[in-house]
Design a protein around this nucleic acid. Structure first.
Length: 275
DNA sequence: AGCTCAACCTGCTGGC
DNA sequence: TGCCAGCAGGTTGAGC
């Protein structure tokens, strides 16, 4: 479910509910996620105050002084701020429990049916954690550019789509937005990364930025189950040009949109507009 | 180093 | 109507 815009939407949604709040503990109902939830996490975070929330790629970071909680939503994860008494759904695996306030006791509730998500506690700078240390630049940051993509792609025979979905190259570009950005840039997703000119990478970097920032503005993409912290869906699914639209007319030339698997992932493109 | 592919899990759906 | 193979927004690690 969640790519960078959905994680950013979640971050913005939960941040005002969490910053400055003191943590009382945690409830672990199902430890076995992509990695086991850090043993004893409740005791480790108890008494800490949330200073801020940040995002790195698709990772969400809760900063608790020198320590941090690292979260990843995997394919099906979502986070909501709810009352501690709020009824549980089958896949509500983890709660971060806050001190009581005038609204009662609130929790940050992590739901993840497929359990590809992550909840880890770290006492180090979370950006130095093994999972985050090798991430490429932020696609909405200053070091991400066409020149950067061009330089990194030299000698690479992999498809450009797999290349921009590689988190070591650029952090947080998933399947939906890779398809969309390549359409916007007019680049065929199966084209070899090392055989694309610098100017076209300029167009691609711009397209990635545009697609991601537009999606953030619309609250992310809700295909089936993504919800914001308050339960509302995102709206970017109405702006999708090619993703999930195999067989339908291309919005630019009215040709048929092709569906094809590239690098184990469903890919959608217009063979007329994308070269 | 870089490429490919299987694996981790559950839920839904499209085709028979 | 009912069943089930196949597929889903992500990532890693093994094998070559």
């Amino acid at each position: 479910m969640p790519e960078l815009p959905e994680v950013e939407t979640t971050r913005r949604g939960i941040e005002p509910h969490l910053v400055g709040r003191c943590i009382r503990g945690a409830v672990v109902r199902k430890r076995a996620l992509r990695r086991p939830i850090t043993p004893g996490i409740g005791k480790k975070v108890a008494g800490r105050t949330v200073e801020r929330l940040s995002r790195r790629g698709k990772y969400l970071l809760l900063h608790l002084g020198d320590e941090a909680v690292i979260m990843h939503l995997g394919m099906s994860g979502s986070l909501r701020v709810v009352s501690a008494a709020s009824p549980l759904s089958p896949h509500d695996h983890f709660d971060l429990v806050f001190d009581q306030d005038k609204a009662g006791r609130r929790v940050l509730r992590f739901r993840d049916p497929r359990r590809f998500g992550i909840v880890l506690w770290t006492k180090r700078d979370p950006l130095r954690h093994a999972l985050l240390a090798s991430l490429g630049p932020e696609p909405l940051g200053e070091t991400f550019s066409g020149a950067y993509l061009h330089r990194k792609s030299r000698g690479r025979s992999t498809s450009v789509k797999q290349f921009i979905m590689d988190s070591k190259i650029v952090a947080g570009v998933g399947n939906i937005y890779a398809n969309e950005a390549l359409f916007l840039a007019g680049i065929h997703p199966a084209r070899r990364a090392g055989r694309i000119a610098a100017s076209r990478y300029g167009a691609l970097a711009s397209a990635v930025r545009k697609v991601l920032s537009e999606a953030i503005r619309k609250g992310g993409t809700t295909l089936k189950d993504f919800v914001r912290e308050d339960g509302r869906p995102g709206y970017f699914q109405f702006s999708l040009q090619v993703y999930g639209r195999g067989g339908l007319p291309c919005p630019r030339c009215s040709g048929k949109i092709t569906t094809r698997t590239i690098g184990q992932r469903a890919s959608f493109y217009c063979a007329g507009c994308q070269r």
